[in-house]
Amino acid sequence: MLKKIEAIIREDKMNDVKDALKELGIVGMNIFEIRGHGRQGGITLAGRSGTYQVDMLPKIQVNIVLSDRNLEETIDAILKAAYTGETGDGLIFVSPVDEVIRIRTRERGYDAVMYPGDIDERKGRGAEKS
């Protein structure tokens, strides 16, 4: 089974999360600059005369497609790295992925989400049939 993680995190936690994933051996990912709000609601900014409220805050979304066997370790790493304890730490969404195809090699499934030096190679795991 392949899974997709969409982790919405603080902008300033981007590097911590990236480092934690690198240490774990998660290689492939995309990041997006997004805006949104959850419980945090927004922040107060100073204007010319007094303050005003901004409700949509900039966040980073990290998308990772990976084998389900690596899912919990990856989630743990993000939870640790993105945590401050304040509202606005973000959310992690996990969903199933039907298929992944690497364009260059036409590899599919697990093969398509494996990289040199990644978590699977370190654990000596080869590709399995998805």
């Binding site: 107060t44 100073a46 204007g47 010319r48 005369s49 007094g50 303050t51």
Partner: peptide, 16 residues
């Protein structure tokens, strides 16, 4: 100072 009393010493406030 006025903008500080209302929250923060705003850059835009200073130059305004």
């Amino acid at each position: 100072v006025l903008s500080w009393l209302d929250g923060r010493p705003s850059t835009l406030g200073l130059v305004t």
